[in-house]
Write a protein that binds this DNA or RNA. Sequence first.
DNA 1: CTGTCGTACTATGTCTGTCGTAGTAAATAT
DNA 2: ATATTTACTACGACAGACATAGTACGACAG
Lengths: 111, 111
Amino acid sequence: MTEISSDVIRGYNDTMILFLILEAPSYGYEISKQIKNLSENKYVIKETTLYSAFSRMEKNGYVESFSQEAENSGKKRTYYRITDSGKNYYKEKCEEWALTKEVVERFIKGH
Amino acid sequence: MTEISSDVIRGYNDTMILFLILEAPSYGYEISKQIKNLSENKYVIKETTLYSAFSRMEKNGYVESFSQEAENSGKKRTYYRITDSGKNYYKEKCEEWALTKEVVERFIKGH
DNA sequence: CTGTCGTACTATGTCTGTCGTAGTAAATAT
DNA sequence: ATATTTACTACGACAGACATAGTACGACAG
């Protein structure tokens, strides 16, 4: 069975993460589980990839982080909230995806 | 207008190149023009990216190179021919694309 | 009460593919 | 005669993904 290689999906890691915080802030561990679930185990993002994506996106102003204790336990988590700039970036990536799909499929057989 | 960034298409450079030599061998300059044309100027592969893809794929056994003079002029070109292993790799990439598309689109809005 | 598992990260260094820049050289167009 | 197109090669830089390792806290089983 074919698996998704990271080189293929690499351009969409940021987009996938942003999608998952569009409605409400979230944090690393949760995001990684959601990516795994939403993709039906076809794609599992590596921890280091995920956290470095967060810090890169924060540097670029696409997300903002804040610390908050978990509801049940007193454990602290770093939550990330999408900014307006991040929403804009996400939107652009969605448009780019449509274009990319169109282009790539001209080079794919059995389509 | 949105342009395709190399980070997005990066996982498909090799696949696109292989597609263009499925039927007959070709060479760098020709391939680059074909990618530009087939994508309607939406994606232009960089020379260095293209030639390093060739040498990587040759090392991996996906293509074989041979030198040949151009029909009209006496100029020499390096042609690349796809191997059976390359055809197989291409086929796998096509299957992977279907999967990737499915997964990515779950994270894309307005779809 | 001890150890393992799940949660929630951080740090560091390596690797790969892309890219910027530059240079070569022959053929063709102006 | 000169500029542009064709057809590459060499080299170094960089960014994102990854492997590996380590920290720390809570829950839960034996």
